[in-house]
């Protein structure tokens, strides 16, 4: 029969998993781009890849300490944002979409190719970069926790660091979005010509937004690889789309939306997958195989994206008042 406790416990673990934190952070970056500034960045996967590879390569190939590796990743994403932004931020919004999606694919293909295999590990990717991060861990060896949340010292360290970064950056986002800077940014989303006519350097603000949200994505990419390996196939366009799904679920122009959205997304997915997979096992769904059960999730994510955009475009945390005026 179905082990409900196991399903619920697995789902509950997603609440604080580092993956959830990474997606929340990437979605927060997209909230700055898309929700607040109106920039259609379809290359968040590329920013995440830069974080992952920037960190891993710095540690593996150059033996850099953790702080330096983080800075390398951030530096790479700033350069990436500049390269993307300079040609496109003066053009209509959909050009940025095409260029960012193409640039993210270029990055992934360059990380995958055999040509740079010595540095990138090509299709197999990279691992073995976690030592210096684990060495910073002040938690003594052992297993801690309660209920479903039982982890060893590394897993706790990872969760604490990951969620601390999320909370700090959420706070930062909240601060800047209620400042005059945030006002200009939101004005640009509504009508950039109007903001330009008021004497604001729209191009520069869009660039700042692109860089800032991109750096969030890069940090998310680093949190994402600390519990696993760096694998280029992770950074496909679908990754960006999942982050968009989370953002839209929570509410595009909100601070809490991306975070709670990520938790809901992962908990529900885990619960749903666990349930379907065990239901298939128990023979409740005779027409479905285990593999098909896995694919059902993607179908549902796709349908969810459509339904949210059509019926609740402001997301869970979005302002209801806005709905009347959203075009």
């Amino acid at each position: 029969m179905i082990d409900w406790i196991q399903i619920f416990s697995n789902a509950a673990q997603e609440l604080i998993s580092p993956t959830t934190a990474a997606y929340a952070l990437a979605a927060l970056g997209l909230a700055i781009h898309f929700g607040y500034t109106g920039l259609l960045n379809f290359g968040q996967a590329g920013f995440m890849a830069l974080g992952a590879y920037g960190y891993a390569i710095s540690v593996l190939s150059f033996n850099l300490p953790v702080w330096a590796a983080v800075l390398v990743g951030i530096g790479a994403s700033v350069v990436f944002a500049l390269i993307l932004g300079i040609p496109t931020l003066r053009l209509r919004a959909d050009y940025l979409a095409i260029v960012t999606i193409a640039a993210a694919e270029i990055l992934r293909l360059v990380f995958t190719t055999n040509t740079f295999e010595a540095i990138t590990g090509s299709a197999q990717g990279l691992n073995g970069y976690k030592g210096s991060f684990a060495a910073l861990n002040p938690i003594p060896k052992g297993t801690y926790g309660f209920g479903p949340f039982q982890y060893n010292e590394y897993d706790w360290w990872l969760r604490i660091v990951g969620w601390t970064v999320v909370v700090l950056l959420a706070l930062l986002t909240w601060l800047i979005m209620r400042s005059p800077w945030g006002r200009v940014i939101k004005g640009i989303r509504e009508d950039e010509d109007a903001v330009r006519a008021l004497g604001k350097n729209v191009y520069s603000y869009k660039m700042q937004s692109l860089i800032l949200g991109g750096v969030y994505g890069t940090l998310a990419g680093m949190i994402f690889i600390l519990p696993r390996a760096v694998v280029p196939a992770n950074y496909q366009t679908s990754l960006t789309f999942f982050v968009y799904a989370i953002l839209l679920l929570g509410g595009a122009a909100t601070i809490l939306g991306p975070i709670i959205g990520s938790m809901i997304f992962w908990v529900l997915l885990s619960f749903f997958s666990g349930f379907i997979s065990r239901a298939v096992e128990a023979g409740w769904l005779p027409f479905m195989t285990q593999v098909q059960a896995g694919q059902l999730r993607f179908i549902l994510v796709g349908i969810a994206i459509m339904l949210i955009v059509i019926f609740r475009p402001q997301g869970i945390f979005g302002n209801k008042k806005e709905l009347a005026f959203v075009k």
Binding site: K186, G187, R189, E190, D191, D193, A194, L198, V326
Partner: peptide, 15 residues
């Protein structure tokens, strides 16, 4: 070009 999803006051402050 009123900035629709900004409050009237925020529209003014932006100026």
């Amino acid at each position: 070009k009123a900035l629709g999803l900004l409050s009237v006051l925020d529209n003014m402050k932006l100026g």
